[in-house]
Design a protein around this nucleic acid. Structure first.
Lengths: 106, 106
DNA sequence: GATGTATTTGGTTATATTGCCAAATAGTAA
DNA sequence: TTACTATTTGGCAATATAACCAAATACATC
């Protein structure tokens, strides 16, 4: 059964794990709107450029984004567009959970 | 802009992070097929029951599953069904990436 | 109340992750 | 070839995570 294939589970978990960091999720959300060079992403993320570079390479390694060098710059783009659909679903669910929590306290 | 709300990003990243461990992903996939008691999940996961319990509480804390005690047993169920749709998408994408890699080598 | 089963929690250790700085690499332009 | 910009990589310190065992808790039954 595919569900219980160990290697597949590991690979999938790697994707989730890569998305499981605020800075990396921010980068992915930004890339969902179109490709960016690392320099733009550094400006957005507010951490050291070496740190951004490491986050990007981790996302790439997980198969979520891919890179392309053009001139001096490296551009990254989203490779796994369904991330964004799930991201929206999670956002909606968190919102609903929050509202339910508030409602219960009234 | 909602996308750049720090607290929201942190909360969403917590969901991804919770899913980003092979054992936890396995537990979630199992729960997608219907609720289970902890004892069943322990048998499935092949790690110590205390470890499974910790994984479950982390998933619960992230809002992905919820628990209900009935008698001596605690039953967990999936609270965020869209996880599974994304999980399938990731699986398909990994499969496609793997095939592309193989094709390139021929 | 004593015993047994199911689950969680405390505590510890080993390992992994993150972030920064400094240095290396790659491309462009003077 | 020197200088400059963009990015990656090496190395390190601080922090977080995961696993196990042991002990605590909760409920059911005798």
């Amino acid at each position: 059964m595919a569900v219980f294939n160990r290697k597949l589970i590991d690979e999938k978990a790697k994707v989730f794990k890569a998305l499981g960091h605020p800075t990396r999720l921010l980068l992915v959300e930004k890339l969902a709107a179109g490709e960016c060079c690392v320099c733009e992403l550094v400006a957005l993320a507010g951490v050291d450029f070496s740190t951004v570079s490491r986050h990007l390479s981790l996302l790439k390694e997980a198969g979520i984004i891919r890179d392309e060098k053009r001139g001096q710059k490296v551009f990254y783009r989203l490779e796994l567009p369904c991330v964004i659909r799930f991201d929206s679903c999670v956002e909606a669910a968190l919102q609903a959970q929050l509202e339910a929590k508030i409602a219960r306290r009234q």
